[in-house]
Design a protein around this nucleic acid. Structure first.
Lengths: 154, 154
DNA sequence: CTGAGTGCAAAAGATTTGCAGGCAC
DNA sequence: GTGCCTGCAAATCTTTTGCACTCAG
């Protein structure tokens, strides 16, 4: 029932898990299949629902634990919304290795952006405080200028 | 017992509340006194504890509701940490009107920064998507280069 | 085989809500 | 006096945890 979903990263994950001394259980592989099947940003609830939709049964607890593992090992990126909710997106190491997000408040669409100048300014700021940057969050949100979410058509 | 705490914004808040059709209850004024008494970034729990320390009794529910009101009316700024926890800081309209945060993971110290170039880049990005920027979050964190949190002595 | 990982259900936190009573205006 | 606001406790929501069982290596 999952043959429509490209499992692009199956092998990678198995390797990563093993190299970290973790077991490649079918739950973890199934969850990764689901996570890597789309570029959407989803919360735990949605991921769980999508798993069920594909007849993959994992307990909520396991999903939490697995997502934790993936985030810790950089397979997943955790996005913290201003509401305190979290969204997750898989780390396609090949495309846009570092990027930030801008959300349209009208339609909920999330776009990714990246700017090299910002990075270098950030580094200067950290340097000035004698800090090594370890994490960065940069999220913008806005409303559509023409009130029609024309960007969504892009 | 609160005579040591400068109540710099008392009048403002009362005016703001009234202009919004809200009542200037003693709970709201007391909470604002506490919030405006320091530039620290605190979570609900800490604020509640600090209130009790100053013999101000408000229920947890009222504190949540009041903080909501203040955030909504721009008297308070809500900072969302990556852990999903929230911190609050009062909006001193006079100093650093717009700023972001960089956290030292070693000592928890939070510094504020602002860079005009970043703002203009952000605006360009939003423009490109036909969006009016309404909110921005930019938070960095890092570890101390010399492992001694020398910045904390600044 | 053995212990890391899982499922379940209960626990733990954090925040919200319903409602009766209180107080700002 | 009126109804917005508060306090309390219960409810809700999200995430974590303890424990017995399972299965990957």
């Amino acid at each position: 029932m999952k043959n429509l979903i490209p499992c692009r990263f199956h092998i990678d994950v198995e390797a990563v898990l093993k190299s970290e001394g973790l077991r490649a259980t079918k739950q973890r592989l199934n969850i990764w299949d689901e996570l890597s099947s789309t570029d959407k940003h989803r919360d735990i609830e949605t991921i769980l629902k999508d798993l069920k939709k594909n007849k993959i049964n994992v307990s909520r607890a396991t999903l939490y634990r697995t997502i934790d593992v993936f985030v810790k090992h950089n397979l997943l990126k955790k996005i913290t919304l201003d509401s305190g909710k979290f969204l997750y997106e898989h780390n396609k190491k090949t495309i846009t290795p570092q990027h930030d997000h801008i959300v349209c408040e009208d339609c909920g669409e999330i776009f990714e952006f990246y700017d090299n100048n910002i990075s270098s300014i950030e580094n200067k700021i950290a340097d000035g405080l004698n800090l090594n940057l370890t994490k960065r969050v940069h999220q913008l949100s806005g409303t559509c200028k023409d009130n029609q979410c024309s960007h969504a058509k892009n």
